[in-house]
Amino acid sequence: MSELDSAVEAVLRQRRPDPRCWDIVVEAACGESSSLGADRALVQAGPAIARHADRIAADLRRQQGPFGTAVGHGVSVRALALAGTGDLRALPALHSLAEHGGLPYNRPEARVMAALPAAELVPVMLTRLRRDGDDYHGNTTTLEVLALCGAAAAPAVAEVARRLDMPYAYDAMRVLGRIGPAAAATADRLAAYATGRGPRTSRNHPRRAAWSHWKVSGDPVLALDVCGAAVRSGSASHGLPFLADLGPLAGAHADAVHGLLDSPGAWTRVAAAHAYWRITGDPEPAVPVLLAEVDPDWTGRPAVPVQEAVGLLGEIGTPAAGPAASLLRRILAREERLAHAFDSRRILADEAYVRTLTDALERIAPGAADPVPASRDMARTG
C-alpha cells in the first residue's frame, strides 16, 4: 500500500489520525498525485485541514484558471474543502459552481457548505435554485442547506415558496418554518397543506405544514390541532417532534405523549421522551428511555435513533442526564470511526456523531468531553 493510500485509509478509519496523514492527503489532492480517495477525504475534512487553507486556496485559484471562471471536479473539491473550514475564499468558486452545475447533489456533502456564514451562503443557494429548475436532487439538496441557514435564508422566501407547488414541498416547508416571520406571506398556503387542501398534500405534509404555519405566523392553534391529532391517531412519529417544538403550548397532549414512552418503536419512544420533557419540563420519565437507546457499539446504521438519543440527553443536560456521562465519554474515546457509512461519507457521518457526543457531554458534565489520553494528545499537537 502506498503512503497516500495508507494516509487516506487512516483518516477514513480513525477519529484521531496522525496529523501527517492529513498533510499527505492535502499535498496529494493539491498536487500531481491526486486520487479519488484523497479528493473524497479532503471534501470531508473540515477543521482538520484548516492549517492548510492557504495551500488549498492557492490551488483553487490555479484550478479556476486565469479568468477565475473554470468549473469542474477539481474546483468543486477544493471549494468544498475550503468551505468546510469556514474559509470565505471558497465563495467565488461556489457561486460559479452554483451557476454552472458543479455543486454536490448529495445532502451530506452539501451540508459541508454550512460551515460558512449563512448570510454569505444564501446567495449561492439562491443561484442554484434558479438554475436547477425541476431537478429533484438539486432542489432537495439546496433546500437542505437553506434550512440550515435559518432566518438568514429570508432572501430566498419567494424561490422557496415556489417549491410548494413542486415535488419538493415537504423540504420547502422546513425551510419556510426555519426562516420564521419573514416568510409570513406563505401562511395561507401552508394552512392549506395542513388541512389537506394543498395541491400536493401527502401523508406527511399536514404535520410539517402546520408546524411551519406556526413558525411563520406565530399562531400555534393549527399546529396543536394537527400534530395533536396525529399523536392521538397512532401516527405518533409524524407529530411528536412538532409537539416537542411547541413545548408547554402542547400541555393538553402531555398524557397522550407519556403513553408513547413504552411504544414498541424505538424512534417513537425517543420522540415521545423528547416531547414529554419539552412539554412538561419533567426529565425523569425521559432520561431512562433515551439512555436505553444509546448503544455503545452503534456502527452508524440510521435505522436506529442512537445519535438522536445522545443529542436529546445533551439538551436535558445536568443534573438530570448525569447517568449518561460515563457512557458517552466511553463512546467518544473510541479510536475507530463509525463503520456503517460509505467511505465517501464516513468522516462526515462520524464527525457529526462526535460533535453530538461532545456537545452532550459539555452540557451534562462540563469539562468531561476530551477522551484523548495525554500521550496521544501530545502526538497530535507535537
Score class of each variant (00 low, 15 high):
His73Ile: 05
Asp350Ile: 12
Ala369Ile: 02
Pro241Ser: 05
Ser33Asp: 14
Arg346Tyr: 11
Leu88Ile: 12
Glu159Pro: 07
Glu362Thr: 06
Asp5Met: 09
Arg301Gly: 11
Ser233Arg: 06
Ala152Asp: 15
Ala244Asp: 04
Arg174Thr: 15
Val122Pro: 04
Gly138Glu: 11
Arg346Gly: 12
Ala379Glu: 13
Ala230Trp: 09
Gly228Cys: 00
Thr358Leu: 09
Gln14Glu: 14
Leu176Phe: 04
Ala272Phe: 01
Glu351Ser: 11
Pro285Thr: 00
Pro206Lys: 12
Gly74Met: 00
Arg51His: 15
Ala365Gln: 09
Asp377Ser: 15
Ser212Phe: 07
Glu315Trp: 04
Leu190Trp: 12
Arg376Ala: 14
Arg207Gly: 13
Ile316Asp: 03
Thr201Tyr: 03
Leu82Arg: 05
Ser375His: 12
Gly311Glu: 08
Gly247Gln: 04
Ile364Val: 05
Pro104Trp: 00
Arg330Pro: 07
Glu9Asp: 13
Pro206Gln: 12
Arg162His: 08
Val226Glu: 06
Asp359Trp: 07
Glu144Gln: 05
Ala185Val: 15
Phe242Asp: 04
Asp132Lys: 12
Leu224Lys: 03
Asp295Thr: 00
Val294Ala: 04
Thr186Leu: 01
Gly300Ser: 01
Pro373Ile: 10
Ala161His: 11
Ala244Asn: 05
Asp370Asn: 15
Val226Asn: 00
Leu290Arg: 06
Ala341Phe: 09
Leu240His: 04
Trp298Val: 02
Ala223Lys: 01
Gly65Ile: 13
Asp188Ile: 04
Cys21Leu: 07
Asp370Arg: 10
Arg62Ala: 13
Pro66Leu: 01
Ala53Asn: 05
Pro117Ile: 06
Ala379Gly: 15
Phe67Thr: 13
Arg111Ala: 08
Pro296Lys: 08
Leu129Pro: 09
Asp350Gln: 01
Ala194Pro: 03
His274Arg: 14
Leu80Tyr: 14
Arg61Gln: 13
Ser375Trp: 13
Asp23Thr: 15
Tyr276Trp: 06
Leu313Thr: 04
Ser33Met: 11
